[in-house]
Design a protein around this nucleic acid. Structure first.
Length: 529
RNA sequence: GGGUUCGUAGCUCAGCCAGGUAGAGUACCGGACUUUUAAUCCGGCUGUCCGGGGUCCGAAUCCCCGCGAACCCGCCA
C-alpha cells in the first residue's frame, strides 16, 4: 500500500475531469489560452434545484482549470428562443394561446419580468448569484438575432440530407430526412414548430417555410397557413437541439459541457455534427443523473411541486447546495428539503477535517474531503473555522422558542456553551433552522386529557406563575404540588410538555417555563382549563 | 426496443467514480446522571454490503453475467 498516489488538483472528481479535458485538448493540439465551458439553462419552466447543477458543475470545472493555471470562463446560455411546448404544472391555463411561441415572446404570467422566458431564467440566475457562481450570460434570442450562428446554420443546412440520414441511423428519428433542421418563427403567427422548412436557398441564406399543423406531445398545434421566407442571418428562428449544441460549441469555442441523461441522444448526435459536419472536435462531456423530488412532500403549493433553490435557501445555506452538487456527480437521485439538516452537518464535518480538528486515517480520503470543502467554498475557503452549531440542535431549540426566537435561542446556546457570544452568522443559522422547524418539523397539536385532580393542580400552577414574584425553585415547586395532590409528578410533567410544546417530552421544565415567560405559559395552561 | 442509475444494520441512507479494519442518523434495548419526565453521556443493535464469477497481496468499491427496483430516451426542444 502507501505507494505514492499522485493527487490531481484537489483530489476530487472535478479535478480528474478537468485533467482529462486538458489532456484531450493537448492531444488535439488546440489553442489553450482560453478554455471555455458552457451550461445550457432551460427557460421553459420553473427551474428545479437540479437545474442549477449543470451550471454549478461547469463552474467547478472552470475553477479546476484555473487551478491548473489555465484561463477559463463559464457561458450560461439561456434557451429562451425555445417554444413553449406545454403548460407546466401550476401555471395558468391562459398560457394556452401562447403554445408554440418562443418563451421570450410570451408575457410573464407573474407580471414581474418582460417575458415568460426572462422570468424563468431570472429565477435560475438569481440562484446562481446567491451561490456566488460567476458566468457570462448569453441569450438564445440575441444569439440568433445577431446572427452569431449564421455560418454554422449555413453549413448544417447545406448538409441537411447527410445529417437527416445520420440522425435516423443513430437515434431512429426519421423526421429530418424530410424536414430541414431549422425552425423559423412564423412571421404571421409567431410560432415555432408549426413553421416547417422545405427549401434552403443557399446563395441567399434564406429558407422557405410553410406554417402548418404540428403535433407537440399529445397536443395538436394549428398552423396559420402562412407561406414565408426567413433570412437565417437575422430573422428569428432556431436550430433544433439535435444540431444546435454543435453550432454553439463551434461558434463559441466551447471545450466542456455537462449534460443530463435525458438529452443523451441529442448530445450523441451533436458530437457527430460537430466533428463530421463542422469539423470542430466536440467538447469534453460528463453525464449526470437527474434529481428527482421525493414523493409526497409538500414543497410549494402555488408553484406545482418544483423544488427551487429559493425554497432551499429558506432553510439551508448556499453552501449546502454547493455541497449537494459537488460531493459527487453520479448516483444522486431523490432530493428534498429534508436533506438539508444532514448537509448542514456534513459541511461542518468537512470544515473540521479541513482545519485538522478531525483526523482522517486514509490520506487519500482526507485530501478528497479537504478538496471538496475547497470547492464548496469555490476554491476560496475561509482562513479560520466558523462557529460550530449543530443544525439539528437548532431545530430542537427553535421548536421550543417560537417568539423572540433569536434572542432566546442564542441565550440557550451561550448557556450550553455551544457558542461564546452572539454573532450574525449564528443568528442567520437560527433563522434558517427556525424556518425549518416552523414549516417541516411542526408537531401536530395533541388533545390533552384532563381529569379533576389535574385541573386543580394546573390551576394552582397558573396562580404561582401569575404572581409578581418569581418562584425560587420552579422545578421543585412543580414537583411538590404534584405530590401534594397525590398526582404522579411524571404525569404532570408530560401534561405540561403537551400543553407547552405539543410533545410528550422536552427540556427541564422549570428553566423552560422561565425562558418562555411565566405569564405566557400561564395563559397557555388556562386555555386548556 | 435502446440506455442509465440503484440494491449496504429493523427503517432511511452514506461509503463506491483514485481498492486498504463495515459506517451515520433514526428506532429499539441497557447503563450512568437527575428529588421527576426530558436532555446529556456511555454501551448494545445479531450485516450473505442482492446472487454468481473474474482481476488483485487485498473488492461494498474495478470488470463480466444474472435477479430485482427506479428513471430517461423511443414526440419535441
Amino acid at each position: 500500500m502507501e505507494e505514492e498516489q499522485i493527487t490531481i488538483g484537489r483530489g476530487t472528481w472535478i479535478d480528474k475531469l478537468a485533467d482529462e479535458l486538458v489532456q484531450r485538448e493537448k492531444t488535439l493540439g488546440r489553442k489553450m489560452d482560453l478554455l471555455r465551458v458552457e451550461s445550457g439553462l432551460g427557460a421553459s419552466g420553473i427551474p428545479h434545484i437540479g437545474s442549477l447543477g449543470d451550471a454549478v458543475r461547469a463552474y467547478g470545472v472552470k475553477l479546476a482549470l484555473e487551478n491548473f493555471g489555465y484561463k477559463s470562463e463559464l457561458i450560461a446560455y439561456s434557451d429562451d428562443l425555445d417554444g413553449l411546448r406545454k403548460i407546466p404544472e401550476g401555471l395558468p391555463e391562459s398560457l394556452k394561446e401562447h403554445l408554440g411561441k418562443p418563451v421570450s415572446f410570451i408575457p410573464d404570467p407573474f407580471g414581474c419580468h418582460d417575458s415568460y422566458g426572462l422570468h424563468m431564467s431570472s429565477i435560475l440566475l438569481d440562484g446562481l448569484d446567491k451561490l456566488g457562481i460567476k458566468y457570462k450570460f448569453q441569450r438564445g434570442v440575441d444569439t440568433y438575432r445577431n446572427g452569431l450562428l449564421k455560418d454554422q446554420i449555413h453549413i448544417i443546412l447545406t448538409n441537411s440530407q447527410k445529417i437527416g440520414k445520420k440522425i435516423a441511423e443513430m437515434v431512429g428519428q426519421e423526421k429530418y430526412q424530410e424536414t430541414l433542421p431549422y425552425f423559423p418563427v412564423c412571421a404571421n403567427c409567431g410560432r415555432l414548430y408549426t413553421a416547417t422548412s422545405y427549401q434552403y436557398i443557399a446563395e441567399e441564406k434564406k429558407i422557405k417555410y410553410r406554417c402548418v399543423d404540428a403535433t407537440i406531445g399529445s397536443k395538436q398545434l394549428k398552423g396559420c397557413g402562412h407561406d414565408g421566407i426567413a433570412d437565417i442571418t437575422k430573422d428569428l428562428g432556431k436550430l433544433p437541439w439535435k444540431v444546435e449544441f454543435a453550432a454553439r460549441w463551434h461558434a463559441f469555442d466551447i471545450r466542456f459541457e455537462a449534460y443530463g441523461k435525458d438529452i443523451m441522444d441529442s448530445v450523441k448526435v451533436n458530437d457527430w455534427v460537430a466533428e463530421d459536419i463542422l469539423n470542430f472536435p466536440a467538447p469534453t462531456h460528463v453525464k449526470y443523473e437527474m434529481f428527482l423530488d421525493k414523493g409526497g412532500k409538500k414543497i410549494s403549493k402555488s408553484l406545482g411541486n418544483v423544488l427551487t433553490s429559493q425554497a432551499w435557501l429558506r432553510y439551508g445555506t448556499p453552501k449546502t447546495i454547493l455541497l449537494l452538487l459537488y460531493k459527487r456527480i453520479t448516483g444522486a437521485r431523490e432530493v428534498g428539503i429534508d436533506d438539508i439538516p444532514g448537509l448542514m452537518e456534513e459541511y461542518n464535518e468537512l470544515e473540521n477535517i479541513y482545519f485538522g480538528k478531525t483526523k482522517v486515517e486514509n490520506v487519500a480520503k482526507a485530501t478528497r474531503s479537504k478538496g471538496l470543502y475547497e470547492y464548496v467554498n469555490l476554491l476560496n475557503p475561509p482562513k479560520s473555522p466558523t462557529q460550530y452549531v449543530n443544525y439539528r440542535l437548532l431545530i430542537q431549540l427553535c421548536k421550543i422558542f417560537r417568539e423572540n426566537r433569536i434572542a432566546l435561542v442564542t441565550k440557550k446556546l451561550v448557556e450550553y456553551s455551544t457558542i461564546k457570544e452572539p454573532s450574525p452568522e449564528v443568528e442567520n443559522l437560527i433563522m434558517l433552522a427556525g424556518n425549518y422547524a416552523d414549516d417541516y418539523d411542526n408537531p401536530t397539536k395533541v388533545e390533552v386529557q384532563l381529569d379533576n385532580i389535574s385541573r386543580q393542580v394546573l390551576g394552582q400552577l397558573v396562580k404561582i406563575l401569575g404572581s409578581e414574584e418569581e418562584p425560587a425553585d420552579l422545578q421543585n415547586t412543580i414537583y411538590q404540588i404534584a405530590k401534594e395532590s397525590g398526582m404522579q409528578p411524571k404525569d404532570l410533567f408530560k401534561m405540561l410538555y403537551q400543553i407547552i410544546l405539543a410533545s410528550d417530552r422536552g427540556p427541564k421544565i422549570g428553566p423552560l417555563i422561565l425562558d418562555i415567560g411565566r405569564k405566557k405559559v400561564a395563559d397557555s395552561i388556562t386555555g386548556y382549563l
